[in-house]
Amino acid sequence: MPPVVTVANLRKAYGPLVAVDDVSFEVEEGEIFGLLGPNGAGKTTTMECVEGVRKPDAGVIRILGHDPADRSDDLLRRIGVQLQEAQLQKRIRVWEAVDLWKTLFPETVDADGLLAELGLTEKRETKFMDLSGGQKQRLFIALALVNDPQVVFLDELTTGLDPQARRRIWELVLGMKERGKSVFLTTHLMEEAERLCDRVAIIEHGRLIEIGTAPELVRRHCPERTVHFSTADAATPELFSGVPGVSAIVHDGERFSLTGLGPDFISNVIERVAEHRLRVTDFRTETPTLEDVFLQLTGHSIRD
């Protein structure tokens, strides 16, 4: 199946500031694709170019076979958009917004069903300005789904929400994928990218620096695993120096931390522990996350 979105050598500058520089990627049908990067990395700019809200300076974008700059009716009918930090009229009621959006498309889903699915049935009559942050975001999701789109764009959907509201929205996004929709989202939350995205593209200073599934990226850039365990038995670091793949051993009282490479590293450690009949009181393994990949690639954490 051809990708639903293809972006090749996209570039966009605001005056002297190059916000997006030579960015290329694809979004496959049915996947959740995430653009991950710190504030100001160029996520929104990239996404808005793909949506056709912004005009790129250079590059080729294809979405469902269309150039988004044409804003063709056929395309607009098949995509759903949620913008970062969007607002609606302060005094518009929830049902009115959905009703208004329904007139924009020839084919739409049932409004009551949609509101029920997003947990907004009780808020039907509430004005936009009286909704909580999470409810506003759910309304924006409803508006993005009114036309039962094939591709959904979600820009920083959960920023500013508490963990509970965030989890609820994650469920909704996974639900979209289950129904066969392709989702293109941006986030600067590692956990969000890890939980939701089939594939992640890491963007910084307007450039894509990596792209792949989270496990792939971890394997590629942070292949080492660390095993932590404690034992009261007499054990010395030397006991482990011969474990295949081991690269670092830290020993502090009863606690050991072994770091090493290779798919069998953890089994090797376990074997060695068994060989020496050590009574282990605590054992856990630490697998690097996207966070570590990001740190490795950029030299800083995504939050600074």
Partner: peptide
């Protein structure tokens, strides 16, 4: 409407 991003939101529709 412009300041609140409402015009932009409407513009991102058909």
């Amino acid at each position: 409407y412009r300041e609140g991003g409402i015009l932009k939101r409407l513009k991102a529709t058909p």
